[in-house]
Amino acid sequence: MSLTTDLSQATPPNGKPGVGKAGARRPGSGRAGSRDEPDGSAPAPRRRSRQRRERLFQWLFLVPAVVYMALFFGYPVVKNVVMSFQDYTTATFFTGEAPWVGLANYVAVLSSSLFSTSLLNTALFTVGSILGQFVIGLALAIFFQRKFPLNGILRSLLLLPWLLPLIVSSAVWRWILDKDSGALNRFLGDLNIVDTGVPWLTSTSLALIAVVGVNIWIGIPFNLTILYGGLQEIPDELYEAGSLDGATGWKAFRHITWPMLRPVVSVVLVLGVVYTLKVLDIILGLTNGGPANSTQTIATQSYGLSFQEFKFGEGAALGNILVIISLVFAVLYLRASRRAVDE
């Protein structure tokens, strides 16, 4: 169940002719004559060429995926780097000319007053979302370790917020958070906690908090599921041994659960960061970056530059900055996942 499981585990060694797949007899596949020869006695050069054919054949299974990944992930990354050094605008689509401008796009993007706002918002959005999702997800995961009727079905129903299209969630929350007739304000009003409608999505000081809140709601199922899986893998014996030594309740969590869960925790957190950094749907759906850029993140600003202002070069430059930030966490992720597998 791990991504990095050694390929060799499921594959028999194919170095030995006649046992592994590479050396298996395949009528009609070899050159004339080779088909009837016992595998072991084929002259070395012929066997090597047959192995090469075999290799080629095996690669054919992989080719479509490699081509697709190259076109839809590799090419965009390279193209984006190139575009970020060009003056790439709507005019480019007519003239086909995109003059080189060196670092001008990066200078324009980094020196704009909006960049620091976006960077700060991205950081607040990411940290706030991850913290909320993780703490609530972990609390629920621990809760669901209890044995009670309907546990499994209730836990799986909790997945629903995560399976809904993000734009659907955004639309629903926009209606719930509506200032005048949203459910949240009506609920708070009925309890006499507030007397006038709170402008959740239209106030510059509240919009980011509201967006983070919605993103926490979306992310809880993901955190719950992974952390629950991690908790399930901690052997019961550890808790039994711990309880003999007086480690129960908080002490058991502190000294048994947390250390054992650490690898899973680091994977959850870093994956969460990588996913949250690129969030676009929720913010565009809830606030469109507003009001007054108070929910503008690097991702939404990159979208705005490219697809609203048609400054594709600057949008690409900002996108690349986002990639670099993500890559830092990607390195952390790979290290974390390797550690998770080792343990």
């Binding site: 991504l3 990095t4 390929l7 060799s8 499921a10 594959t11 194919n14 797949k21 290799r55 095996q58 690669w59 299974f61 992989l62 995926a65 490699v66 990944m69 839809f72 992930f73 590799g74 090419y75 965009p76 990354v77 193209k79 984006n80 575009m83 990588v274 950094l277 690129k278 676009l280 991702a299 990159s302 979208y303 490219s306 697809f307 594709f312 949008g315 690409a316 996108g319 690349n320 986002l322 990639v323 993500s326 890559l327 966490f329 990607a330 992720y333 790979l334």
Partner: peptide, 28 residues
Amino acid sequence: YFKVRGAGIVLFAILISQMIPGIVVANA
């Protein structure tokens, strides 16, 4: 099933692809 040379690279590329923001892909 196959010990294809470069299988590790393909898996690594799949992992890395998850770090690429959609807006970067869309832009290009």
